[in-house]
Design a protein around this nucleic acid. Structure first.
Lengths: 220, 220
DNA sequence: TAACTATTCAACAAAATTATTGAATAGATT
DNA sequence: AATCTATTCAATAATTTTGTTGAATAGTTA
């Protein structure tokens, strides 16, 4: 085997991974699977794709060893093949946000629709939680909360927020978090909370990022 | 703008980056540019592509903001757009090596051609250099050495190694390094050194990885 | 200003990727 | 064992990506 043939083979193998990531639907699937395992139909619903199409994209991800499967009754559940996969996705996402102004612009333009939303990062939240100075709300669905959530967070699905809200004391700041950087449930929640007279902020990133950084997570 | 349209736009923008990385030639270019700036023709020669083809791939990388250009006389020099780019590439490469046995296999099969080569990592090399226990050889070309090399390394281009070798004392271990994980100059060097009776090892990764990790680098 | 030259572009054909449709399959229920 | 059902597959057409060829371009040098 010549050096050239060797290099061709190596870069070709590695490009199978980047190729598998080189499609918007598949990036969204990877982002979603950061939450935990999902069935094909759930993935299709979350991403607005047909089941057959989602299945085919999942095959591509599986062949690239980026996702793995387990079976639960009639359902096949897809998960990320390891935490490295989410980390690599997070690194690429960061790359996009730093070097490609377009990504930043799309996100900030869309978020402006909810008014000016303050956000804090994971480190700051840890400090506030330790001092017991804040109420932390998980505004994803009840099911997602059950899969895993930030330690000490209360479940407050965005649809039910307005009724839950009445039970919250107004003397503490409320922090809301959701699925990730590209999920706007937390923005919606903060906008509603502020309208009702609360001091509110969103966690900059979402649950999968929090978990990937090794901060405390629980299912109870 | 609906949530769906927002997500479509975000993932579409981000996929431009992963798409740009989703091609073996372009990965090889990114890997090469980890060494420093190169002209289109140099890139074409190093990768075995035609100049026009290399140019087109470079346009793709440039549009994705992964590389940037500077001009030097008649030549246009391409560089990585920032160190994040090399780090993202390194993360993907690591992902490939961990999850895709095929990559590991191709590399180790090819290297077996040079016999059993021991390698050490960057951290271990730092310790050995501090104790002045080793001779460190940069076996890339003289020109690459001049662009930048590991502090205290001697230039020993692989072609000239056998003559340089005569000047080296035999009481110290020799460590050789080259362009990266997929470069076999260091393996060749170690094989030759061992044949001549030296104790020799290769640095596991290459110069760009060393530099990306923030270890000391010099051009003098 | 004229000549030169590294790089890019345009046009083409071949190959690969994509979404949709509807049928096939594997595996769990009953 | 028969039925049911989530998932996968096969076939298709539309779109995108790729490498080659040769010409065009922009910017430097003389």
């Amino acid at each position: 085997m010549t050096k050239r043939a060797f290099k061709d083979k190596v870069y070709d193998e590695l490009s199978k991974i980047t190729k598998a990531m080189g499609n918007p639907h598949r990036l969204e699937i990877i982002d979603l699977l950061g939450q935990g395992p999902f069935s094909v139909e759930q993935i299709a619903n979350h991403t607005g794709m047909s089941v057959a199409n989602a299945s085919q994209h999942l095959q591509v991800l599986k062949n690239a060893k980026l996702v793995s499967i387990t079976r639960d009754g009639n359902f096949i559940l897809y998960s990320l093949a390891g935490e490295n996969v989410f980390n690599a996705w997070a690194a690429l996402r960061a790359l996009g946000i730093v070097y490609n102004a377009e990504v930043e612009k799309v996100v900030s333009d869309f978020r402006k629709g909810y008014g000016p939303i303050e956000s804090i990062d994971a480190e700051a939240l840890v400090a506030l939680l330790e001092k017991d100075r804040v109420i932390l709300l998980d505004v994803r669905s009840a099911e997602e909360y059950k899969r895993g959530h930030i330690h000490r967070a209360l479940s407050a699905p965005i649809d039910e927020l307005s009724s839950i809200l009445k039970t919250l004391p107004k003397n503490k700041t409320v922090i809301a978090y959701c699925r990730g950087l590209f999920c706007v449930f937390a923005d919606e929640a903060v906008a509603l909370l502020k309208k009702k007279g609360y001091k509110a902020q969103r966690l900059y990133e979402g649950f999968p990022d929090w978990a990937a950084k090794g901060y405390p997570v629980t299912t109870k």
